[in-house]
Design a binder for these strands. Structure first.
Lengths: 106, 106
DNA sequence: TTCTTATTTTACCAAATTGCCAATAATATG
DNA sequence: CATATTATTGGCAATTTGGTAAAATAAGAA
């Protein structure tokens, strides 16, 4: 694979990687229901606010979410609704896995 | 977030994580065109065969690909064609990013 | 200005990931 | 059987990631 092609895949993998964490996946799913401020998200996640803030920064850096500061609060929102397709595909992989396991020979 | 919910997100993130690597993303895309043996994939990737084999094991473990040994060769194939939706969504995130950058103030 | 709330950044450590080499396993062929 | 081919596994060093506490920033209120 030549370098230009490698770089292409590196960039794309970076976007996927941004979602490849339980907390960030939760954040994406929650934001798919509408914008939320960091403190709301922090309450839901239950981790330290600095941890949640970092996860949001990762998502923002990948271009998956947008932020909007209003007063002392920062509101995050999904920038590309299509990321939910990721989740529905993940569900089909899980269902395929479950089906396979059910018919597995002992 | 309670533990059961956390576990749910961990499992789902695991599937996404399996694709969150440049080489593995390439492998998924290549396999979307049909089954390939490890040596073919190794030639295309250009890394050591042990490295490629390990990447394929990660994808298999997540349930994204299936393997089929025939003689001395092992053929891998995509198990859920929907993973290609991931890729098209990644493209729209990239396009949104590019559009944003183009209209960004200096 | 000083205080308070909301968020981000920095510094640090533990844990996980990557990729290569060497060793091993499985199968085919002479 | 000996040997070659294909692939997987184990071990290891280098790098990256994840999470927290503490410090820094930003905005509004008193």
């Amino acid at each position: 694979m030549d370098n230009a092609l490698k770089a292409r895949y590196r960039i794309r993998a970076g976007i996927i990687k941004a979602m490849a964490h339980p907390t960030r996946l939760f954040l994406v799913e929650e934001l798919s229901r509408g914008e939320r401020c960091v403190c709301e998200l922090t309450d839901m996640v239950g981790d330290d606010i600095s941890t949640v803030s970092k996860h949001l920064a990762v998502l923002k850096n990948a271009g998956i979410v947008a932020d909007d500061k209003r007063g002392t609060q920062v509101f995050y929102s999904l920038r590309c609704p299509c990321v939910l397709n990721f989740l529905s595909c993940v569900e089909s992989v899980l269902m395929t896995n479950a089906a396979e396991r059910a018919t597995m020979p002992v």
